[in-house]
């Protein structure tokens, strides 16, 4: 007798396997790197690692924040590994990534929030991988302009900061130090920087938000200068995290994607398994992205 699946039919992925997966796993372990694929128990890990791509997480594996949907370890982190920028750049080289997505934990314990370490990581990737583009997914640095500028000065082609959820659900989902307005402010600072990177954000669906909530959030993102957005289903990493309020139907995700384009986003992707870095290399092939990279003074890939 088959057991009843707790998931709708569209929440189904392939279990990781195969030589390419083993290769990616070995490489990550060999270089002592952290990935959000593992720390977040990402269901896309099989698909992505089999494509020999991974989203590396810098500044260690411990976050100083504690958001109620996230399974990344929370606590007092060790000092950043000074070798990490070079190791990440080496991983990008070995995986032959044309577009490297780098995410990170929040480091309230560091005076600059880790901005200099992040900037060095971007520079190391560009140095060792000519032509490769870099997408950052950064924390909010408590909105400190100097720190955000340190990161922007490093010249990552995509500056991502996730709004994560709609304004109404911030108090119940996020660490109390994270605010909706601060997230928008970080995106605004990136959008006003010259040369302007592609400014990107992402939010989760399935926490009980309404379509009107999502529309209002998309409008706020646009008003802040955000140009690319991804929307995906929240999936509970484990019993310690908040439960899923709703499994959003794939048709609703399609409607969100269409709405984002109609509202004026240059790139939008939405779907049950869409994550902020999921298949982000595809965005870089879009005309606007290639034009922007040219304007930033880079050839790109």
């Amino acid at each position: 007798m088959a057991t009843q699946s707790p998931f709708p039919e569209w929440i189904r992925q392939g279990w990781a396997s195969g030589e390419d997966f083993t290769y990616t796993k070995g490489l990550i372990e060999d270089l002592g790197l952290h990935t959000v694929c593992q720390s977040a128990n990402c269901p896309n890990i099989g698909e992505c690692w089999q494509r020999r791509t991974a989203t590396m997480m810098v500044l260690g594996g411990t976050c100083t924040r504690s958001c109620r949907y996230c399974s990344v370890d929370s606590g007092k982190p060790a000092p950043p590994d000074p070798q990490e920028p070079e190791n990440v750049a080496e991983a990008v080289r070995r995986m032959d990534l044309k577009h490297a997505v780098i995410t990170m934990v929040t480091r309230d314990d560091l005076p600059d929030g880790g901005a200099a370490h992040i900037a060095e990581t971007v520079r190391a990737i560009h140095r060792l991988n000519p032509g490769a583009t870099v997408e950052l997914l950064v924390p909010e640095f408590e909105g400190v302009e100097a720190d955000i500028r340190t990161v922007l000065d490093a010249g990552a082609e995509v500056f991502g900061h996730n709004i994560e959820t709609v304004e109404r659900l911030y108090p119940v989902l996020r660490d109390r130090r994270s605010t909706y307005r601060l997230a928008l402010d970080v995106l605004r600072q990136a959008a006003q920087y010259e040369p302007r990177p592609i400014v990107k954000s992402a939010l989760m669906a399935g926490h009980g938000e309404t379509e009107q909530d999502v529309e209002a959030t998309l409008q706020d993102l646009l008003d802040a200068g955000c140009e690319a957005v991804s929307i995906g289903q929240y999936l509970r990493p484990g019993p310690k995290q908040r439960k899923v309020e709703a499994f959003v139907h794939p048709d609703q995700f399609k409607a969100y994607e269409a709405m984002a384009y109609e509202m004026g986003f240059l790139f939008a992707t939405a779907g049950p398994f869409v994550r902020s870095s999921y298949r982000s290399d595809e965005m870089m092939k879009a005309y606007f992205a290639r034009e922007r990279i040219r304007a930033m003074g880079r050839v790109g890939s």
């Binding site: 998931f7 992925q13 392939g14 396997s17 269901p43 999936l235």
Partner: peptide, 15 residues
């Protein structure tokens, strides 16, 4: 076969 974890359902391919 199909497996479920906390997060999702997964199909396991034959090696």
């Amino acid at each position: 076969l199909e497996l479920t974890t906390d997060k999702a359902a997964f199909s396991v391919p034959s090696p």
